[in-house]
Amino acid sequence: MNVRELLKRILPDLAILLSGFLVAKWWGILFASVCVVIARFGTKALVANALCVLAAMVIAVLFEASLETGFAFVQHRPVANELGLLLIVAVIAIVVPRPEPGR
């Protein structure tokens, strides 16, 4: 495999890892690594991954703190916020073009 092909192959993964770091720092890069692995299983797996993050985020929104009006609603939900950032990475992982979009 020549360098050009290698680059073509790893560039999408690098883009996901970089976006993971830029969006959500260390948790982001960790999650991006997971996405890179999941990407090997194809787009459907990535979609399932994003839906799982979305579901986890919604659950966190509902249960992380009491449901009340005011600034407290957004300030007392660090897990939901983190998951929301990771969801951006998950979406980017779905749409980043790949030479071989998995099995």
Binding site: L54, V58, L62, L67, E68, T69
Partner: peptide
């Protein structure tokens, strides 16, 4: 707007379109 912050059914409902959008991202 309090319904978006206090009503669990409404909160879940506001994410349904997003879930469908994610599904569409994987639909060729």
């Amino acid at each position: 707007a309090s319904t978006y912050l206090t009503n669990p059914v409404v909160i879940v409902a506001t994410f349904v379109a997003l879930a469908l959008a994610i599904i569409a991202l994987g639909w060729n």
